[in-house]
């Protein structure tokens, strides 16, 4: 019944993959996303090579309860944006089963034949234990698609869960999707949802009258920093008012740019990312345990009461910069012993 599987062709170099990516090659994009997602040893190199080519694309996050129609809306929106000549990437996140570590990723069902368009790239991603509705590698994948030349990259978060805040911090524009019959009483809406949306969508308007919900939303949503979030009534099923949604998203980008917020966000994001990376590198160093003569000497000094642990730690970190470079890979320790080289 079974037979040996053919061995893989020799793995192309990361540099080669990035060159192909920049030329628009979908397979290279897919491979790069995988090696970052799997946190292969080449991940840091890949991210470093990709980064200079990013910064053009508009990152748009979609959040909302399970089944509200996020994937269906994204599918429609992609088609609308394509008709405007925009290239569009999509990263759709679904939860990993905490029991098996596996996942069934179903967002693509709603995007049936959209992915075949040369100007579209769709990638499904499992959370792999990361909380907050995204996977750890979600925005790394977004960057890969940015570097590939996508004009917009749409991110579908896991609907369930408490914290949609992460997407709001990462995307330029956050689209909050609601539907009429469940959310009429806005008090029942998840806390925070009224603060994070740059654009609100009331979807499934073909099924129920959206007026109550829209009025409630309009009453509760406040202008933030000079932007009043618009509310768009759509039917992803019928494809109605998708152009309005696309316009609203485009207007928000224009607002960010003209108000100087795009640049301010870039700085805030850069600051946050440097610190996140520093924290992770330090944590890894400390967790994996420094080795070598320098560290042993410090241990001896603390034992001999020549110095105290706090001062020793400060010195350790100071000298660590040079001593433990090999541990500064992007790698997080894997919870499973199955890590393999590709």
């Amino acid at each position: 019944m079974r037979e040996a599987v053919p061995s893989r062709p020799a793995a192309p170099s990361v540099r080669g993959l990035v060159e192909d990516l920049l030329a628009g090659d979908k397979r290279a994009a897919a491979k790069l996303i995988s090696l970052i997602e799997d946190d292969e040893p080449e991940a840091a190199e890949a991210l470093a090579l990709v980064y200079p080519h990013t910064g053009r694309a508009h990152y748009v996050g979609f959040t909302g309860a399970p089944g509200v129609g996020k994937s269906s809306l994204i599918d429609r929106l992609v088609r609308d944006l394509r008709s405007r000549g925009k290239k569009v990437g999509v990263v759709a996140v679904d939860p990993t089963s905490p029991y098996s570590g596996g996942a069934v990723l179903g967002d693509r069902i709603r995007m049936a034949d959209t992915g075949i368009d040369p100007g579209v790239f769709i990638r499904s991603m499992a959370t792999r234990g990361h909380a907050g509705g995204l996977a750890l590698a979600t925005f790394d994948a977004v960057r890969v698609l940015d570097a590939m030349g996508m004009d917009l990259v749409l991110v579908e978060t896991v609907g369930a869960g408490q914290s949609e805040v992460e997407i709001a911090g990462r995307a330029h524009t956050t689209v909050v999707v609601e539907m009429p019959f469940t959310g009429d009483a806005v008090q029942t809406m998840k806390a925070g949802i009224l603060e994070i949306g740059d654009v609100y969508v009331v979807n499934k308007c073909d099924l129920a009258d959206p007026d109550v919900l829209v009025a409630n939303l309009r009453f509760q949503i406040e202008e933030r920093d000079g932007w009043r979030p618009p509310i768009v009534r759509t039917s992803a099923l019928k494809g109605s008012r998708i152009d309005e949604l696309a316009d609203a998203i485009g207007r928000h980008r224009a607002f960010l740019e003209s108000s100087g917020r795009w640049e301010a966000r870039e700085r805030a994001r850069a600051r946050q990312e440097i610190l996140e990376n520093a924290r992770r590198i330090l944590a890894t160093r400390v967790r994996e345990g420094p080795t070598g003569a320098g560290f042993e000497a410090l241990v001896g000094e603390v034992v001999a009461r020549k110095t105290d642990p706090q001062s020793a730690a400060v010195r350790l970190l100071a000298q660590g910069a040079a001593a433990t470079k090999s541990q500064d890979r992007r790698t997080r320790p894997s919870s499973r012993p199955r890590a393999r080289k590709r």
């Binding site: 089963s97 098996s100 596996g102 996942a103 990723l105 693509r108 069902i109 049936a112 034949d113 499992a126």
Partner: peptide
């Protein structure tokens, strides 16, 4: 396959 720890992308019916 999910229960065996794999990530399964399901693309739905009637795909070319």
């Amino acid at each position: 396959l999910r229960d065996a720890g794999m990530e399964v992308i399901y693309t739905g019916l009637r795909q070319s």
